[in-house]
Amino acid sequence: MRHSTITWAAPTAFTLFSLLLWEAAVKLFNIPPFFLPPPTAIAEAFVRFGPAIASESLYTLITTLIGFAMAVVFGLGLGLLVGASRTIYAGLYPLMIGFNAVPKVAVVPILVLWFGIGGVPAVLTAFLISFFPIVVNVATGLATTEPELEDVLKVLGASRLDVMRKVGIPRALPYFFGSLKIAITLAFVGSVISESIASNHGIGNLMLQAQAQFQVPLIFAGLVALAVEGIVMYALMAWVEKRMTGWAHRGGHAA
């Protein structure tokens, strides 16, 4: 079989097989649908609640993307700053680690207190949870600039900014684009957490309501919708990464 055939056939086959296994297990062990609905029941829920799922998914997607966009801008800026200066790195790093260690779900009540229930806390949670990997990756990329190369340029009278522009930033780009894949998945986590705690919209809220009404297939349909969104955005980021920094994947051993 050709390599390209395997790359799409294998995942498809595995997914179908898992679904079949799931369906069979539910039937075989007589698991009640309010405990674990079979895939067919979830598909049914999709058809029945299609418009609601679609609009709430879109809401969550937009919320996530706004938070993610903020994280990209802020994370890139802070990463460059932290990576460029040893002092800022030393001063800010422990603070950032501490900040990252705080479970973001614990921050949501504060955000609600400040901004009220709704989209803003969700956007901010998505932002807060996803900016950290971007900062760390960009800073790491900058910090791995070879000292010899820096010497070569400094002898020629290069300023710090020159070294950043010519070497540091291009070198950090693969790290940056790599971190986007992690950040976008985390951003979904953030927005859905916030939606399920304090919002009247979004998939998180939809799932919470479905739970309250005991519509278990709908809960699972929400999960599936989230998974699909997550996969699509991840694939998009992976594609962007490949487009922007192909050189880093073609020959990692050079330099």
């Binding site: 070879e146 010899e148 190369l149 010497d151 070569v152 010519k166 070198r171 050079a254 330099a255």
Partner: peptide
């Protein structure tokens, strides 16, 4: 200057 590592930029 030139060093043991060629330190060429891969991009």
């Amino acid at each position: 200057m030139a060093f043991q590592a060629p330190t060429l930029l891969p991009w």
